[in-house]
Amino acid sequence: MTDAVVAACRDLRRVYGDGPTAVVALDGVDLELRRGEVVALTGPSGSGKSTLLHLLGAMDSPTSGSVVVAGRDLAGLDDEAASRFRNEHLGFVFQFFHLIPSLSVVENVALPARLGGATPAEANAKAAALVERVGLGGRGDRLPDALSGGQQQRVAVARALVNDPALVLADEPTGNLDHASGGEVMRLLLELAQERGIAALVATHDPQVRDFSHREVVLEDGRLATPPTS
């Protein structure tokens, strides 16, 4: 894996259950993600997109094969180590935003930093800058419910970046937004990924995501239908 490669999967296989009812979610997936690169992960429902995101996100373990992210093989990480790894090296963006409704915009963005041990002042300063960067300056004290869907997703993007991760994993980030808002969020993600040298893997059904990605990989029945690199 070269310096430019942030994440790599080798012959990745994930099987749920066993015996005749076993379901093969991923079967021999090889994939590399590089710094500053936004990759669209597409494929029909049930093709294994979410499974791949979970394996790259240290939230699940492969049946076989390897996952290396930010130079660290995720195999064998215990829960404590996996938690720390996610906090330090990964960012997540979800379809339904998953902001904490009781925390303000800045507090939501600062949350990963505070969970990582930053002082409130440090975390809030960093978060406020990011909130400004995603175009929500002046709305930092608001609760998420007071924002539109597109704005909430921008907060989620800021939250994903607050600990300067190597990789952002986004699961249908435009799935709950209108076309224009979805485009804005993707444009923001692309800008930030390039600006900060972060790799982003975006699982999506939204065709416009391709317009904001460097390349597209397609999963079909757990297998990659396109070459691992473009």
Partner: peptide, 15 residues
């Protein structure tokens, strides 16, 4: 689901 988010963001079991 909120607990899931916290765990995804790096919150430990203990937290």
């Amino acid at each position: 689901a909120e607990l899931g988010v916290l765990r995804a963001l790096g919150a430990r079991q203990k937290t």
